[in-house]
Design a protein around this nucleic acid. Structure first.
Length: 273
DNA sequence: AGCACA
């Protein structure tokens, strides 16, 4: 591992100085590549509903970002790059003098700065930025893929399958960890079957459709009570009629776009602050 | 499948 960082530019003491710098970008790209983020691609593998891991990673690192909703892996890679580059930067700095001595006639090595010093300084100050940019670009590309939400996506989730004795607090507890979570509204209704008794429905409000989608994905099939007879499994869908409290005034992704969502056009100026 | 609150 160390050899990699050290040889960032001049592999093995300048064995092949002309060799272009091989950035770690490749590796990360590959990782991005086999990331399975297609929305609703598969049929609910609850097992990977390591939801837990999923949203913690992505959302936690996203930092301002509902944008990263689906990007559980993005954050990770992002972080991975950071340290790596830092090392590289350091390597360059240390190697600078050596390289100069060893290969005085290889200007390209010096890079845009034309001077080792310049390059070094540049790396120090900008390394993060540069590479972050690179990552960001890839993230953007990915995001294009991630953006795909079902036509009926909205910022409100409709949750069914909660136990009758589920409290609002209990329900909220499940959704609170997700980025963009706003509130949960429980509704007690009579079951279709007369014998059925009550059924608890739940509407969960998120900042935007993507946040909602993330939670939906993660919690789909969530077993509320593992020990129970049929072990309640949550069923989540997007609410037909996005909430009154308005899908967050700052929600640009509200509701299905390619959908004649006239009902989505309700006044959102609720003024809830 | 089952969708309420304003």
């Amino acid at each position: 591992m160390g050899d990699y960082g050290g040889s960032w530019r001049y592999a093995g003491g300048g064995a092949d100085p002309r060799r272009p710098v091989s950035t770690p970008t490749k590796r990360s790209r590959r990782e991005y590549g086999d990331r399975d983020i297609g929305y609703g691609a598969r049929d609910r593998g609850y097992d990977d509903r390591g939801a837990r891991g999923g949203w913690r990673d992505g959302d936690g690192l996203a930092g301002g970002g509902d944008l990263m909703s689906y990007g559980g892996g993005l954050g990770g890679n992002d972080l991975g790059m950071g340290p790596g580059l830092g090392l590289a930067g350091g390597g360059v700095g240390n190697m600078g003098p050596l390289s100069l001595v060893g290969l005085p006639d290889e200007p390209t090595i010096l890079g845009p700065g034309g001077r080792m010093v310049g390059l070094d300084g540049g790396m120090g100050g900008r390394a993060g930025g540069l590479n972050l940019n690179g990552v960001a670009a890839e993230a953007d590309a990915l995001r294009g893929n991630v953006d795909v939400l079902p036509p009926d996506a909205s910022s409100t989730l409709f949750v069914d399958g909660l136990p009758q004795d589920c409290s609002r607090r209990e329900a909220a507890h499940i959704f609170r960890p997700f980025i963009g979570f706003k509130e949960v509204r429980l509704v007690h209704k009579d079951a279709k079957r007369v014998n059925g008794g009550k059924v608890v429905l739940c509407f969960v409000e998120f900042a935007d459709a993507r946040c909602a989608a993330t939670a939906l994905e993660a919690l789909q099939g969530y077993k509320f009570d593992e020990t129970d007879h049929d072990s309640y499994a949550l069923r989540l869908t997007f609410a037909r009629h996005p909430g009154p409290r308005g899908p967050a005034r700052d929600d640009p992704y509200r509701g299905g776009r390619e959908h004649g969502d006239d009902y989505n056009q309700r006044p959102r100026g609720g003024g809830r602050r």
